[in-house]
Design a protein around this nucleic acid. Structure first.
Length: 871
RNA sequence: GGGAGUUUAGCUCAGUUGGUUUAGAGCAUCUGCCUUACAAGCAGAGGGUCACAGGUUCGACUCCUGUAACUCCCA
């Protein structure tokens, strides 16, 4: 069978993924083996695959595939998140396109559209993950609104309510005036925004005096209920206890003093609007100020504003500024840049607002979760995130769990027209409880219209995918939980990771995972975060089509050091594709040998085989170590070098027979064995090509995907050192050849002056092949009319037909000599320093003496050579 | 304003408790090669006063202090 020119990724990806599925290699059920479990961070149900998912899921697949090959019962659970805000926003937009307003629909009608949308577009992303080669147990696919999952979310809400940690309260929240919902602090994006700072005059009651305040929100003056100054501010001391008059509406408000005010900002006088600013609210509470809410839900002004009723807030800002100026209240404006909060979902400016919401008290529930991480019961990689986590957990605030949305888990609270309410699983229960509690009959109750925050369902993920709460102590949860590794983005450390740890401790009494690996954030070449709005996120599926899934995996992994952001560059994928090509060509070479085997046996390839065997052990052990520390990028680099340089560039060249010459059968067999081992090392990173090569190399009854990794013995250091020496000598001599502009076809005669003849004897067959020497022998002295090269402690004389130009040689030797001399001086200086010889450890001292001796010897050799040249 | 982090070759990064032949990779660059698996390749080379300024030490990329720039989180 002839092999294609290059690795055909499209055919092979499809072929192998379906084969793996047919064989059910990704399916996991509890058995006697030790489990290795990962739950996938569920992407938004209507999401599409982007670079962040690619990175995240490639890492998980590498870990899972490696675990599978190491004999663990590997289980990787897929699923999707209902993503209440994001999905509802998409459904609303879709309906709007069809000319349907959400407000014209009943809740049930809206939800049927939403489910329709979910059935149509939901889970596309999971299909896309198959293209990447992800080895997920598809039978376990979970959705956060599956029946059991939904019930668990509701039950947990009721349980926490019973425990008294869920409460209802009017609090300052972040209000999204477009989505008409409350946002958690984490859903608010702060952006540097250019604004105007307006200086406004408020008249002091009963005087002709004024006080000037500075504000960026002149449209909120109708909500002002005080003016605040610093108690020590000399400029305003005379005004303490007096009253000011709000312009345009003429409300009388007190002038209060509080050291919260910064004297050096603006005018040092602050207008206080408790209904529309978090800090003002706190100030209002402290000084018992009146609260005047001047906004409607949608960001227009309410009747309480008295003026500009029904107009939009930013429009009012413009208009009121003009009116204030016309009426003489506006003193001046200045440019001012500060951070303003925007909704993560709708990108509108967030309105701080007082609202009745459901809250979860975090103090008690969070303390075991803090402890678990600080005491490394759960390990974070990289560990720097421990600090971030601690800082947040120690300053944790209560969690606003309600959202003014329909798509999600509906809050199980039921209200009576009297305003009293009960929390219950369904209407029947609610009525029963309510009637008993309040001793009435025929109560009519209405369920809360709001939904729970998405994270209030995803914090159950690690156990509820195994139905650990809905069906306690089932076989799966007992076997797979706690899971092993969580791979996620650092951005959601608080949203999700921290809360999963809390839920795990609260409901399973155990941590949800052993370790968390935080990936970097994928950025573009300019370092910008990839996002839809910037349009700088490449189409991953197109890239996979173009370069292949293995190349995409390679490209994203090679550039992603543990915990650092990765700058995505398409050339990395090209590198991955080239790597595929290299591997493929090595296969082609070996397949050419297959048909030309001889059972004649010589030992001229023994060195190459021994060396590579040791090199393979060395690297296998290194890779194993790196993987344990999540140095995946380094592990991949190491394997890449082993395959490209050590295997292809060195080993294969060393054992390669001459043109159309046969290869010894034992060499051929060893070579395919090595290649197999290499593919096994590579498999977790690049599953498709490695599986294909595995089957190309030999007739197999099994698949690489599930082949068990055999632990390697530790390598023989002498063999490895000799390999290094051989490579150095080959490169050194090739360098001379290059510098002398010898053609590859020009052969040379080589003389070696060494104290280690036996070593070089075993290297000779390879050496002659690699530097094109038709004759190699040992010399005890200088060889006339030759080029000299000093490599390590040995001297090489190269004899050619070509006329000799010694000048380049000479200057090279002189350069080397001066380098060695200054090196020697620095070593000698160190050694003559008494304090050094007294304090340094013996092994350090020995090393310095060795450095000195080596340098002296090399200097000696080079000086002799130079002398010969002159002579 | 508070906290965390980063700064090593043109780019992306390694560099383990201070000492490993006066700092290592990959990519890019340069030189020479269509050599028989691979030009998506082969052979070789050049390139860094380790952000800056001090300090501790026999010895600092590594530890300490300060400065600067950038990044992230929180007010």
């Amino acid at each position: 069978m002839t092999l294609s020119k290059n690795f055909e990724h499209q055919i092979n990806e499809h072929k192998w993924y379906s084969h793996w599925l047919d064989k059910q290699y990704f399916k996991s059920t509890p058995d006697e083996r030790t489990p290795y479990t990962i739950v996938m961070p569920p992407p938004n149900v209507t999401g599409v695959l982007h670079m962040g998912h690619c990175l995240n899921n490639t890492i998980q697949d590498i870990l899972i595939r490696q675990a599978r090959m190491k004999g663990f019962n590997a289980c990787w659970v897929p699923g999707t998140d209902h993503a209440s805000i994001a999905t509802e926003a998409k459904v609303v937009a879709m309906l709007r396109e069809r000319g349907i307003a959400k407000s014209s629909l009943s809740r049930d009608e809206f939800l049927s559209y939403a489910w329709e949308w979910k059935e149509k577009y939901g889970g596309i992303i999971l299909q896309q993950l198959k293209k990447l080669g992800c080895s997920l147990d598809w039978d376990r696919t979970t959705f956060t609104m599956d029946k059991d999952y939904y019930d668990s979310v509701i039950n947990i809400f009721m349980d926490l309510y019973k425990k008294g940690v869920i409460y209802r309260g009017k609090r300052m929240i972040n209000w999204d005036v477009k989505a008409l919902t409350a946002l958690s602090d984490e859903e608010v994006i702060r952006k540097e925004t250019r604004q105007k700072l307006y200086h406004l005059n408020y008249a002091i009651e009963g005087t002709n005096d004024n006080i000037t305040i500075a504000t960026v929100r002149p449209e909120t003056i109708m909500g002002d209920t005080a003016i605040c100054v610093h108690p020590d501010d000399e400029r305003y001391k005379h005004l303490h206890g007096k009253f000011a008059i709000v312009p345009l509406i003429n409300r009388r408000i007190p002038i209060i003093a509080d050291d919260y005010v910064a004297m050096d900002f603006g005018t040092g006088a602050l207008k206080v609007t408790p209904a529309h600013d978090v800090n003002d609210y706190a100030l209002g509470q402290k000084h018992q100020l009146e609260i005047v809410d001047i906004f409607n839900d949608n960001g227009t002004l309410s009747e309480d504003a008295q003026i500009y009723i029904g107009l939009e807030r930013f429009e009012v800002r413009k208009k009121i500024a003009i009116e204030l100026e016309e009426k003489g209240f506006l003193i001046k404006t200045e440019e001012y840049t500060s951070e303003v909060g925007y909704s993560e979902r709708t990108d509108v400016v967030v309105e701080p607002r007082l609202s009745m919401q459901w809250w979860l008290s975090m103090k008690d529930i969070s303390s075991p979760a803090l402890k678990a991480v600080m005491e490394e019961e759960i390990k974070f990689y990289p560990p720097k995130f421990k600090n971030v986590y601690r800082h947040w957990m120690e300053n944790i605030k209560d969690w606003c769990v309600s959202r003014q949305l329909w798509w999600g888990h509906r809050i199980p609270a039921w209200y009576h027209e009297s305003g009293k309410f009960v929390v219950a699983k369904n209407e029947k229960d609610a009525i029963a409880v309510f009637e008993t509690e309040h001793n009435i009959s025929n109560a009519v109750l209405k369920q809360d219209e709001d939904c729970l925050d998405t994270w209030f369902s995803s914090w159950l993920w690690p156990f509820e995918v195994f139905k650990g709460y809905s069906n306690p102590n089932n076989a799966d949860i007992n076997y797979y939980y706690p899971t092993n590794t969580l791979v996620t983005a650092p951005e959601i450390i608080f949203f999700w990771v921290a809360r999963m740890i809390m839920a795990g401790h609260e409901y399973m009494d155990v941590k949800p995972f052993q370790e968390v690996y935080f990936t970097g954030i994928v950025r573009d070449k300019q370092g910008r975060k990839m996002s839809k709005s910037l349009g700088n996120s490449p189409d991953l599926l197109e890239l996979i089509d173009q370069y292949g899934a293995d190349a995409a995996r390679f490209g994203i992994m090679i550039a992603s050091p543990a915990g650092n952001d990765i700058l995505f560059d398409e050339t990395a994928l090209e590198q991955g594709r080239n790597f595929n090509n290299k591997i493929w060509n090595a296969l082609k070479l070996i397949k050419m040998w297959e048909v030309r085997q001889t059972h004649e046996h010589t030992n001229e390839n023994d060195f190459a085989i021994n060396w590579f065997e040791n090199r393979l052990s060395e690297v296998s052990i290194e890779v194993e170590q790196m993987m344990k520390q999540f140095k995946l990028s380094e592990a991949l680099k190491t394997i890449y070098t082993l395959i490209w340089d050590d295997f292809c560039s060195w080993y294969l060249e060393w054992v390669k027979p001459g043109f159309e010459q046969p290869i010894q059968a034992n060499v051929y067999n060893k070579t395919t064995e090595f290649f197999t081992d290499l593919m096994q090392l590579l498999h977790p990173f690049m599953p498709f090509i490695s599986e294909e090569i595995y089957h190309q190399l030999d007739k197999r009854n099994d698949d690489l995907c599930v082949r068990l990794l055999i632990e390697k013995d530790s390598p023989n250091q002498t063999q490895l050192d000799q390999g290094v020496l051989l490579k150095q000598v080959i490169s050194g001599i090739r360098d001379v050849r290059n510098k002398q502009q010898m053609k590859p076809k020009d052969s040379i005669k080589l003389f070696i002056q060494t104290e280690e003849k036996p070593v070089f004897e075993s290297l000779m067959p390879i050496l002659s092949k690699q530097v094109n020497a038709n004759e190699i022998s040992f010399a005890n002295d200088t060889v006339a009319n030759s080029f000299t090269s000093v490599i390590g402690k040995d001297k090489f004389y190269i004899l050619t037909e070509q006329p000799i130009d010694l000048s380049t040689q000479k200057s090279a030797l002189e350069k080397e000599l001066s380098h060695l001399k200054s090196f020697l001086i620095s070593v000698e200086k160190k050694l003559s320093n008494e304090k050094f010889t007294q304090n340094a450890k013996q092994e350090i001292l020995d090393l310095e003496y060795k450095k000195k001796a080596d340098a002296e010897m090399k200097i000696n050799i080079i000086e002799l050579s130079l002398k010969d040249m002159i002579g």
